[in-house]
Simulated assay, not measured.
Amino acid sequence: MNTAKKHKEKFSLAHLTALQVPPPEFIRMASRTGYDYASIRTIYMGLPGEPNYDLSTNKEMLEDTKKALKETGLKVWDIELVRVEEETDPVSLVPSFKIAQELGAKHVIASIWTDDLEFGKNSFAQICDLAKPYGLTVQLEFVTIAGVYNLKGALAILNSVKRQNAAILVDSHHFHRSVHLFGDKVEDLKRIPRKWLNFFHLCNATSLIPEDVEEMTRILREERLYVDEEGIDNKEILSYMPDDIVYSLEIPHKQRVEAYGYEEHARKCLESAKNFFTSSKVKKEVVLS
């Protein structure tokens, strides 16, 4: 008789899925809909249409966020987003790192948008150094439309900076695009050391990749699909991820939010992910130690 316990997947709700919901209510919503963690966007980037949830300057919202965590028992898995550009001052991020530690977060997401990769590499290394005293791992996410746009580039950065608290965040949507546009291969995921894999941005999207950058941007911010829908071969991608990785569901979809509301959409995101893992027999490949 096989007495081995089946691994239970852990899920976090990524803030981009419901970005207009402020952190306190976002945490309560994540708890009500069954998530294990919340991933909150507390680093303000000044992008058009994005609300400012900088908890280091909004003390009232910070206290309400702490209250929501205490009420629900939910944990903050990560904060985001460090957008590395020429005008980014790494030292200015320290207040956000302090707040992340206060909230119990373990990770901060960063992506490199400058085309000056030497500058981007040095800035990323400095960010890792600044985040380390606060117990934060800096997750480098490669984004198809950014300066570091594929797995190969992300691996090159981490192998160069050699920071103990540096890691790689794979997003199934971005990776699908990098495979078809920039020469990555699914089996290249075996090159990621296990210590660099803490969590995974999970979603689905149409397999057709638009050529227009504006349309690519719109889809990744407004039209990602539920995990159990057709498009990306998540089954193959996830075969290279460790069993105990946390899945952060980043599934923004403007029309579905308008139809269902943020909370029901968040619930459907989680249901779709659980359906995927129930119905898909993901055969695990070897992950490096």
Rank of each mutant, 00 (worst) to 15 (best):
H201A: 07
T144R: 05
W77V: 03
L136S: 07
E285R: 05
L155A: 06
E102Y: 14
R221Y: 09
R221T: 12
N52P: 03
S92D: 14
K98L: 12
N150L: 04
V108L: 06
N122W: 01
F26Y: 14
V148P: 04
S239C: 02
R28T: 07
I43D: 10
D129V: 09
K281L: 08
Y134P: 01
R32E: 13
L169V: 08
I219R: 15
E86N: 07
L74Q: 05
R256W: 04
L62Q: 08
K106P: 00
P95L: 08
E263I: 07
K152Q: 12
I109E: 10
L158I: 03
N275C: 04
K195C: 02
F175Q: 05
H107R: 04
F175H: 13
T57D: 10
Q164F: 00
N204M: 06
E258Y: 00
D89Y: 01
P252M: 11
S123M: 14
A166Y: 04
L130S: 10
K5S: 14
K67E: 06
S280T: 13
G153C: 04
K67L: 10
T278Y: 13
I40N: 00
Y53S: 08
I237Y: 15
Q255S: 15
Y260K: 11
L225N: 14
L249H: 09
D244M: 01
L47S: 02
L13P: 10
R32T: 11
E285N: 15
C128W: 02
C269Y: 03
D233A: 10
N204S: 13
I27Y: 02
P95Y: 09
P133C: 03
R28H: 07
M61T: 11
K67H: 02
I168Q: 06
S207D: 15
L55I: 12
N165R: 10
E80M: 04
L19R: 12
F97W: 04
K75E: 14
M45V: 12
R177I: 09
F142L: 04
T42I: 12
V282H: 01
S248V: 05
L93T: 11
K235A: 13
D171L: 10
L140D: 10
F175I: 04
A156S: 15
L136D: 05
E264S: 04
F97I: 02
E222S: 11
V161E: 11
I209T: 13
V94F: 06
F277G: 06
R256Q: 12
T137P: 00
R221E: 09
E80T: 08
A105N: 07
F26A: 07
E87P: 00
K281Y: 09
I127H: 06
E87C: 00
